[in-house]
Design a protein around this nucleic acid. Sequence first.
DNA 1: CTGGTCCTTCCAGTGCAGTGGAAGGTCAAC
DNA 2: GTTGACCTTCCACTGCACTGGAAGGACCAG
Lengths: 129, 129
Amino acid sequence: MLIGELAQASGTTTKTLRYYEQAGLIPAPGRTAGGYRDYPPEALSRLDFIRRGQAAGLTLAQVRGVLDVRDRGLAPCEHVHDLLDAHLTALDRQIADLHALRDTVAGLRDSVDTIDPATCAPGTICRYI
Amino acid sequence: MLIGELAQASGTTTKTLRYYEQAGLIPAPGRTAGGYRDYPPEALSRLDFIRRGQAAGLTLAQVRGVLDVRDRGLAPCEHVHDLLDAHLTALDRQIADLHALRDTVAGLRDSVDTIDPATCAPGTICRYI
DNA sequence: CTGGTCCTTCCAGTGCAGTGGAAGGTCAAC
DNA sequence: GTTGACCTTCCACTGCACTGGAAGGACCAG
């Protein structure tokens, strides 16, 4: 399988595949006589896993962590559980932070509607922020 | 006011102040005989505004947009209202996206606890992601 | 044999908001 | 006069996940 075919099959680009190889996410494949990358069929399932990991909001470094465990011949179940657990905690905090920010911004925006701009102090940049 | 004093007073660093100047967020101040930056007192309120804008989750480019309006001698009220409104919309979508992601990740994590790892297919990377 | 498409490597840039460090100038105190 | 703190400019780097482009080789159809 040439790089362009794999890119098409996995819904990504040749640029990205070379980048993944350089980043240690996919192993360097064999080469054809002409020096072209020649991927085995299982490269596709590896790319699907990477895509699913990304869809779950994991970084490529985290995905690579799981792949590294798997490549050492181990079952990554515990690792995956801990990773998802930590990710969930981070997401919860991120959502809470964003919620607080949202309320702050909503208050600021409403203040623009309700506070008379004539009461702005001359030396300030903006009365509302 | 020298740059170190302003940095201390505004709770930032000299590096950041030079960066803000280069980025067009604060005007280039006068210089002392020795070539040191010499800030006027109102630089502090400008930096406070920048900090409040950042606390509201605005980018420096957005903050600079407000400052540009103000520097042209106009009241930025309408601009600020529109900016905050758009920001609020973006925040709401971001929160919704994050919520959906959170639910997905929670489902994945729980599947690690409930699905028997012995049922993993040998060719796959991970049964859970 | 030529044209077109695919592939190769390598270097550099994107956006965001700074941060690090080198090489050197200024100023006040001792 | 010298130490030390502060300042100057300039260039490069951080993290993240790519993306763009140049220069050149491989391969296939007509």
